[in-house]
Write a protein that binds this DNA or RNA. Structure first.
Lengths: 140, 140
DNA sequence: GCATATATGTGTTATAATCATAAATATGAA
DNA sequence: TTCATATTTATGATTATAACACATATATGC
């Protein structure tokens, strides 16, 4: 198996593993979404949950635990770094910023995401050739 | 949680669950690919592995165990049905055919796949707006 | 007979998702 | 000033899934 955040990935620098994640069999995409949101602007767990929900990738908001655990392990791997923000109202926030390494990771993820998207396109084209635009009319 | 092949899906007929799978959080797509291939032509485990590999959805062929276990549970659910084929050379093949229920399932999957694809498009558009076509030049 | 290709399966472990809960801090209301 | 609520971070436990490894059976060609 090969998932960088859990450190079990062999041959991280092989040509087929541009970022250590591109060749995963069945990745979920919480990590790259976190990285992409952070690329735009430093943020923290609670806010990330809201922002990622807007992506409609996750019909329901991503799991709270998953967000925090991912952030921590991503920090351990060096893709992001955090500092406490005690300013502002409410409890202190742990603000995350994407690192240079994290951006490298994001580039790798982009390749993975693109491949996946193309496969889904291929699926949909074939599907539509079998059932001409069925889903337009028969949506319950 | 909601994955039909493992039978843990609550409220299968709710409006947000058109096929019992459309609202999954992070589905992998082996099942719909199997169904789509079967829609084209009856097939069996070993052949499905080859055909699905060609989809380049799975950079490496799908797990052998996953294929057979999925086929068995899909049959239990009624999406496909099988019969032994002893004709031809080599060991007997268990030939699968998609059922009417299976096609309903496939329609639901198509909605899921489309949503997922759109989210990935959204990811890629944002990504490319941050790094103008970086992956074209900096591919290692 | 024996290696090999084809074909179907099972067992186990590693990883990830999900659900439940805890705990701390500020805010506003009673 | 106490109490409920919103915000924020976090952990524990359970289940689901993926990945890897292995086992079995049948034909085919040497």
């Amino acid at each position: 198996m090969c998932h960088p955040i859990h450190g079990s990935c062999q041959e991280k620098n092989s040509p087929s593993h541009p970022c250590g994640c591109s060749e995963q069999k069945a990745p979920r995409f919480l990590q790259p979404f976190i990285l992409l949101v952070l690329k735009d602007k430093d943020s923290y767990g609670y806010e990330l949950i809201e922002k990622i929900s807007e992506f409609q990738f996750h019909h329901s908001p991503p799991d709270v635990g998953a967000i925090y655990r991912n952030l921590r392990s991503m920090e351990k791997e060096g893709w992001v770094k955090s500092k406490w923000d005690t300013k502002g109202s409410g409890p202190a926030k742990r603000i995350y910023r994407i690192t240079a390494q994290g951006e490298e990771m994001l580039h790798g993820w982009a390749i993975t995401v693109k491949k996946r998207k193309e496969a889904l396109d291929q699926f949909l084209r074939l599907y539509q050739s079998y059932y001409k635009k069925r889903e337009k009319t028969e949506r319950r």
